[in-house]
């Protein structure tokens, strides 16, 4: 009985670690469709693979979670907009069968670019709490455009209210374009594009990256590390800390303390995942003879 318990625990640990090792690996099945060539099917499978890989990384980065509908909308959006976030990919296997195509990919996502993209999409703010906003559109908007607009509202995480700011309005422009206008309490932006999503996110991107916009809910923490014998080591840790972007963001070295007894550094970080940061710090610092302290910083 005791042995059986060990075996079960062993397999659970194996599965957990296997999932960590497979980060970046995605598997896609695309069913065969009439009139769709093999090349086109492969292209669609690739795009879906990219979207899945971006979704996986986004889930790790975002401070909150997206519900099922929003996740589906995100995946759908990324099927046509993921490429800027893809650093490289490798086809691990491609299996054509009667019913369709199974594609296994190893996708490397450009995390800093994705983080910026998610900020512009407003997801860092609205996965914590919905954003109140007014959205208006003309009655002449056709059904397809209307459905797309509703999807964008849900994906962005807006809670529609009347007579509030920010206020977004959209109308059909010349030559099948869309003209969007976003007004906040201090500024107003306008964009025109044939792609409604491009209009939407270029305007909301301006809004969500304004310096005065309230930052997403993640708290700012002060991380102090001591025990180095050289400032080079502290600067290297600064790079390491920047790479832990699933745990912290907006990493800033604020103080480098060089004493005869050793070198210490203090960083301000925006905490996304406290457990993950704790795990990373504990796996990195003690084995290098370093100690740390983490304290909440007053929000700037």
């Amino acid at each position: 009985m005791r042995n059986a318990r060990y075996i079960i625990v062993f397999f659970v640990v194996c599965l957990m670690l296997a999932s960590v090792a497979q980060a970046g690996a995605v598997r896609v099945f695309k069913p065969m469709e009439e009139g769709v060539s093999d090349m086109e099917l492969r292209r669609r499978a690739l795009n879906e693979g990219f979207a899945l890989a971006v979704l996986d990384d986004a889930k790790l980065m975002l401070p909150g979670t997206m519900d099922e509908v929003r996740t589906e909308l995100f995946k759908e959006y990324m099927q046509t907009h993921a490429k800027p976030y893809i650093q490289g990919y490798k086809v691990l296997s491609s299996e054509s069968m009667e019913g369709g195509l199974i594609l296994s990919l190893d996708v490397r996502v450009n995390k800093p670019t994705l983080r910026e993209g998610l900020k512009k999409m407003g997801l860092f703010a609205t996965t914590q709490a919905p954003q109140s906003a007014a959205v208006t559109w003309p009655d002449t908007l056709n059904e397809e455009s209307m459905a797309q607009l509703q999807g964008l509202i849900t994906l962005t995480g807006l809670q529609l209210e009347q007579d509030v700011l920010p206020s977004f309005s959209i109308e059909p422009g010349p030559e099948k374009t869309f003209k969007g206008r976003l007004e906040s309490d201090k500024r107003e932006w306008v964009a025109i594009n044939k792609d409604m999503a491009a209009v939407w996110f270029s305007l909301w991107g301006q809004y969500f990256t304004r310096s005065e916009v309230p930052r997403y809910g993640a708290s700012v923490q002060k991380l102090s590390v001591s025990g180095w014998f050289s400032p080079d080591a502290a600067l290297e840790f600064d790079r390491v800390l920047h790479a832990w972007d699933s745990a912290v963001q907006d990493v800033q070295l604020v103080e480098l303390d060089m004493q005869p007894t050793g070198v210490g550094g203090t960083w301000e970080v925006r905490l996304l995942n406290g457990d993950r940061l704790d795990m990373l710090l504990k796996s990195y610092l003690p084995q290098r003879g370093l100690s740390y302290q983490l304290a909440e910083e007053t929000e700037k």
Partner: peptide, 15 residues
């Protein structure tokens, strides 16, 4: 070269 020095200065240590 500075980065390599940084990696070495941050190397695991048993004591």
């Amino acid at each position: 070269a500075a980065r390599v020095r940084g990696v070495v200065q941050n190397s695991p240590m048993e004591r």
